Computed example of a mutant assay.
Amino acid sequence: MHTNKMLGNSIEPGIHMPQYIRLLSDMSLMAGLIGYFEYTERHEIADWLEDPSGRIPDPRVTSHENHEPLSEDSSEENRSDEGLSSATGEHRTDVSPWLELLIMNQWMFTLGDADCYPSVPHGHCKSKTREWPKLNPYTGRVFSDTHKEDASQRLSKKDMIKIWNDSKFIEHCREQVLWYSDFAPSYGFPSARRGKLAFPRWR
């Protein structure tokens, strides 16, 4: 594993939950795992979770509520041809199959998952072998198929706060981001406007 390269052996106690989302989003953007559109949305989610007054509205409510498939140019979850081949090709065999984490007794996250949709990492309902639905933990969105969100399963603010206060989950996310960076080093998103080598300011 590569955890020591980034933040040390353990979760840093001085970082609050929304900062983890920002930190992992920065890592994902720099590694080319997400485009700028999703990067921006994740930061909006972090701001919403961090707001104690409740004045910031849920940033997910006003977009894509009609469940229509998004166009290739407008979606943050777009995959390049290379990404598709990585996601549907053979899985790495050098990762132990028991490195799984069940969140909320429903969402299974697996270290070494070669699939990149809808996010890295993402959760499968109950089991890795069940393809749909999938959870994007950064935004709380649940997808029943490619570019088809099931808004009825969207995580609440309470759920988001719960999972992002779980140190094991945060560690798993970080390990999977680093694993995927090694697995598909040239992976990129067509909508990554700032490019794979962009270096955002860490918070």
Rank of each mutant, 00 (worst) to 15 (best):
I56P: 07
E131D: 15
N105E: 01
K162I: 06
A114Y: 10
Y36F: 13
N4L: 13
D182P: 10
R194V: 07
A184Q: 04
M6N: 12
T110N: 14
S80I: 00
P190Y: 05
L102I: 05
F169W: 01
H91G: 14
I45C: 00
G32C: 01
R193N: 15
L7C: 08
T3I: 13
G140M: 00
L101N: 08
P18E: 00
R141C: 03
L178S: 09
F169G: 00
T3Y: 11
L23K: 12
I21D: 05
Y180V: 03
A87W: 07
S63A: 10
E77P: 14
W164K: 02
H43S: 11
H67Y: 14
R141T: 03
Q19K: 09
E65S: 09
M1I: 05
G195P: 03
H147K: 15
K128A: 15
K5S: 14
E90A: 07
G123P: 02
P137K: 03
P18V: 02
L101P: 10
S181I: 10
H124M: 03
N78D: 08
L197T: 12
W164P: 02
S167Q: 15
I161G: 04
S10I: 09
D81Q: 10
I11Q: 10
D113C: 03
Q106D: 01
S86T: 14
P190C: 04
F189L: 15
P18D: 00
D51F: 00
Y39H: 12
T129S: 11
A114S: 15
F37D: 13
P18M: 00
R22C: 10
N66E: 08
R193V: 12
E41V: 10
W164N: 01
R60V: 04
S80A: 02
L49Y: 03
H43P: 10
S181L: 09
I15Y: 08
A184N: 04
S85Y: 08
P121V: 00
I170S: 03
T62A: 08
R92F: 11
Y138T: 02
I15T: 09
S119V: 00
Q106K: 02
P52Y: 02
T139L: 00
Y117Q: 04
P185Y: 01
L84N: 10
P18N: 02
R201T: 14
S191V: 05
F109S: 07
H124L: 03
L70S: 12
I21S: 06
E149I: 05
V177G: 06
E77T: 11
T62K: 13
Y39T: 10
G35A: 01
C125M: 12
C125A: 15
E12N: 15
R60S: 05
R201I: 13
